[in-house]
Design a binder for these strands. Structure first.
Lengths: 335, 335
DNA sequence: CTTAAGTACTGCAACGTTGTATAGTCCAGT
DNA sequence: ACTGGACTATACAACGTTGCAGTACTTAAG
């Protein structure tokens, strides 16, 4: 029903291939012919059929972005930025939600969509290490974790150093009983492990006890529940490092609900710098990863792999992105 | 490079079509043959080429969801729910961010992606009324607004009634100086107009003055700025109805920053019931649209249009989805 | 005047898949 | 033994596009 090259060709009185040439900007087309073809295209409202193009070229112009969940503001932000970065290359982004399910993540790495996408930007949650190595031929860029030196490109901040920065900041306020909310034992929870390592290193250095609260996932409710446990069991902390901002906002809620003052009684710092934390009361201190740069680098890396240049086949690259400590009200006061 | 039916056929010693039949679950294939083909498929890691399928069938199995921005929690939530609903029909969802730019929205409605997608679920921001009528042949379901009785299906809550509910709730607390934050004058800002109408109707009924604050967009910063203006100019309100939760959270921030008590001095209610509002301090009263149902209905409606049934060609349908008032701390106390 | 190079355009094949048409085999019911 | 039907499998064409090869004409160079 929609017009194809054939219809345009008939209307303009030229061959199909000439229309194709016009559409693709081939140089050797007489201006008069070009104009006639253009007119026919406009008149019929011709739009190239991507399926046919892809069938011929093997390229779809679509890349997939796989994230655990869009509801999480950090991933929503990264997704938005990646869509923008991909747009510059006129790529379309297909967003896959894994919900952190290992099965889904495995499918993606195994190339479930191999024919539909040219490349994959993947923020793994349930998979780690060697499981990410089962490559499918589709270029893949990993996001967020430093992975065992695997076969894939990889963009991340230095989680451990950033966590250490956050913890050190709490120390610098004179706090001595510093808790961590966000511990996870699953071997695939690389983010949690790395941030925990940073936290531990600073406390060890200062000769302080650690106070580690596990969570099932990284949502507000988990942070609120963990904080409640922390307050119910034994001596309360005077500072909390939450492994992401959602946990921190949950913890904040519990603290305020119980009439504690933040940062007066307890200082709170998060991780990710989501917008919520800039408008909460108190506003939330946090580690701010350079999300725009992460998105840009991920797309650039994929572009290199997809290009015809020499970089298309080089060894996997690991790119480090900067982070910075953002001090806001939740840690601004004295003890 | 990846194997096709041809390769599987060669390995299994059958015709291409037989492999196709096995893949598509055609009944009349001998068990032995089927097994042999299956084995070959496993061995080669065959995956159907979607481009070729689409080229044959005209169907891509992909629907597009166009929203203003993923960063907004409400849209992120709806997007997540639509992805889930689409999954039940094994559809893939392509998410388009319009950033509220009219040009992009026009392109979508005009069928920019016509060959890549089977249908479109569209939450318009810059376009309204007749501009949405330029249909492209791709089935479209509109989200969120009651649109001029256009040619497209449409799922929405009753914005005006919901806004009236919110305003009436503030009235029921005995508040008399009730402001509205979120007014927009652009003719395409249908949401803002409808919510304003609901607000006005209740105040008119009660014989109270309206106090209307315009905003550029519906983000936290806009809410914070509008609230600041409200407090700086003349007599402050004792209640505020914000046209979405982000505005409300911004307003909340400004109020608390200035030492006002919520709801003591000023009661605040929002709209959308995003998760943030359940963990803010105070927690945020709001209008909760049944987002899961919106998502489900939108996908179902699209499925009907795409199916072969009689509903595929009927007149456009307008579906109303329920909403409810959720009272939380930000309006819970007495004046 | 011939040759070579460049320009303008066309035809054919192929990408991987599936619908239609077809052909052979086997069995049950006449 | 003969017909009709169900079962199993195959060949061919077509979806819309583009790479490649090729034709015909024009111009510049030798």
């Amino acid at each position: 029903m929609p017009p194809g090259l054939k219809d345009v060709a008939a209307r303009a009185g030229v061959s199909i291939k000439t229309v194709s040439n016009v559409v693709n900007g081939y140089v050797h087309v007489a201006p008069a012919t070009r104009a006639r073809v253009q007119a026919a295209i406009e008149a019929l409202g011709y739009v190239p059929n991507m399926a046919a193009r892809q069938l011929r070229s093997g390229r779809s112009g679509v890349i997939a972005l796989a994230v655990p969940e869009l509801q999480s503001p950090y991933f929503a932000e990264v997704a938005g930025l990646i869509v923008q970065a991909a747009e510059q290359r006129s790529w379309t982004v297909l967003i896959d939600q894994t919900d952190g399910q290992a099965e889904r993540e495995r499918n993606l790495v195994a190339g479930l969509r191999r024919h539909a996408i040219d490349g994959l930007i993947f923020s793994p949650l349930a998979l780690a290490g060697e499981e990410l190595a089962h490559q499918s031929g589709t270029p893949m860029v990993l996001l967020g974790e430093r992975v065992w030196h695997g076969p894939a490109d990889h963009v991340a901040i230095d989680n451990t150093a950033a966590a250490a920065d956050a913890t050190r900041h709490l120390r610098s306020l004179g706090r001595r009983r510093i808790a961590a909310i966000g511990v996870q034992t699953a071997p695939s929870a690389v983010t949690a492990h790395q941030r925990l390592a940073g936290y531990r290193s600073v406390l060890a250095e200062a000769g302080l006890e650690t106070l580690e609260m596990p969570v099932a996932s990284f949502h507000r409710a988990d942070g609120a529940a963990a904080m409640a446990r922390l307050l119910d069991e034994g001596e309360p902390p005077d500072a909390v490092f939450c492994f992401n901002d959602l946990l921190a906002l949950g913890a904040l809620r519990t603290l305020l609900e119980r009439g504690l003052s933040v940062p007066g009684d307890v200082a709170v710092i998060g991780f990710d710098d989501i917008e919520d934390g800039r408008f909460s009361t108190p506003t939330l201190s946090t580690i701010s990863p350079d999300a725009a740069r992460i998105a840009q680098l991920a797309v650039d890396l994929l572009a290199e792999r997809l290009g015809d240049g020499p970089a298309a086949v080089g060894a996997p690259r690991e790119l480090r992105v900067d982070h910075r400590l953002v001090v806001r009200e939740s840690t601004a006061g004295a003890a």
